[in-house]
């Protein structure tokens, strides 16, 4: 197995994009010290910024549910998940800022001003505790599958190293999600119907997390940041989770759902227009979520000021 602890880039250069593509095709890994093509730098940066924003928005959402989690053990799980997501965001913002496209502060300001993007699943409202279970079971699994597919190749060294730890931790979240779902699924009729309702709200956002079909010319595929097109990941997810949810006795909110002659599950065609509007921060809960994040940032300014001052003093 290739170790992730390899020597850093030695300022490698490429004569043109074709030369760079050959390097990628031969299994090369790009490091911060390399003179990477600007197209690669911009696209990989955008992807990492999106991932970082999503971790931060996810962590803030989970934080809001800590007081509502029933029982000490579930509070402990949500505390730990919140810390994980915020820690992941921190690591990703460090990698992103180092690429020299935007500073960390600029990335955060763009996020809070609604100028940048994050995962679709953080644009909807979680109504009951069962929504949190649906998110932990369905959305964490979708995020895990999507991140694992990026980790599988991922030609940008620092991102790949961070992803290794993120994917391991998201796998841990998934196990918590499975455990929490099992409790509701084997619970009372009220608990089961709460989950069924939450499933109606979260099934489609989870399936749509993988995005519309990839453009076959997507440079992120050619540069092996994405190892598989969106539709392949989405389909694998549907094939796995339809039978699992049905096995627990839940109904998938899709009247057209059926198995084709090969036994593959086919969903109804997806209308991507609402997703596109949502991703431009026009989702049902986008405004409130962004405002919550912005307020969190301004409320904690004094902590950053205090840290900056103590760092300056230490440097004197």
């Amino acid at each position: 197995m290739q170790t992730l602890a390899t020597s850093p880039g030695r300022g490698r250069t490429w004569s043109d994009l074709d030369d760079f593509q050959t390097f990628i095709d031969d299994g090369g890994m790009v490091e911060p010290g390399d003179d990477m093509p600007d197209e690669y730098r911009q696209e990989v940066f955008r992807f990492i910024e999106f991932h970082a924003n999503s971790e931060l928005m996810g962590g803030l959402t989970e934080r809001d549910w800590i007081p509502h989690a029933p029982g000490l053990r579930l509070k402990q799980i949500f505390l730990a998940k919140t810390q994980d997501e915020i820690g992941h965001a921190h690591l990703l913002y460090m990698v992103g800022a180092d690429m020299g496209v935007k500073t960390r502060t600029a990335m955060l300001e763009d996020l809070f001003a609604g100028r940048s993007r994050f995962h679709n699943v953080f644009h909807y409202q979680a109504v009951t505790w069962a929504d949190q279970i649906a998110i932990a079971y369905l959305v964490d699994a979708a995020a895990f599958a999507s991140q694992r597919a990026v980790f599988a190749e991922c030609t940008y060294g620092p991102y790949k190293r961070v992803l290794k730890r993120i994917v391991a931790e998201e796998g841990f979240h998934m196990r918590h999600g499975e455990e929490m779902l099992l409790r509701l699924a084997t619970g009372t009729d009220i608990q089961r119907s709460m989950f069924q309702e939450a499933l109606g709200r979260w099934w489609w956002p989870a399936v749509q997390l993988f995005g519309p079909d990839s453009d076959p010319n997507d440079p992120l595929l050619a540069w092996k940041i994405k190892s598989q097109p969106n539709e392949a990941l989405r389909d694998a997810y549907v094939q796995k989770y339809v039978p699992l949810l049905q096995g627990y006795g839940f109904r998938i909110p899709d009247d057209a759902l059926h198995q084709n002659l090969d036994g593959q599950w086919q969903t109804r065609p997806i209308d991507w227009a609402p997703l596109k509007a949502t991703m431009r921060n026009g989702g049902p809960d986008s405004r409130r979520r962004i405002e919550t994040a912005r307020r969190n940032w301004s409320d904690t300014a004094w902590v950053r000021d205090a840290l900056d001052q103590s760092t300056e003093r230490a440097g004197e």
């Binding site: 911060p32 010290g33 810390q83 994980d84 921190h90 690591l91 961070v162």
Partner: peptide, 23 residues
């Protein structure tokens, strides 16, 4: 960089030589 990392048993640091966040 931060006393608290993604888990309670790890802190976040930065290597300025190879420009990687490590834990």
């Amino acid at each position: 960089q931060s006393l608290a990392g993604p888990t309670r048993c790890r802190e976040i640091a930065w290597c300025s030589a190879c420009r990687n966040p490590i834990e």
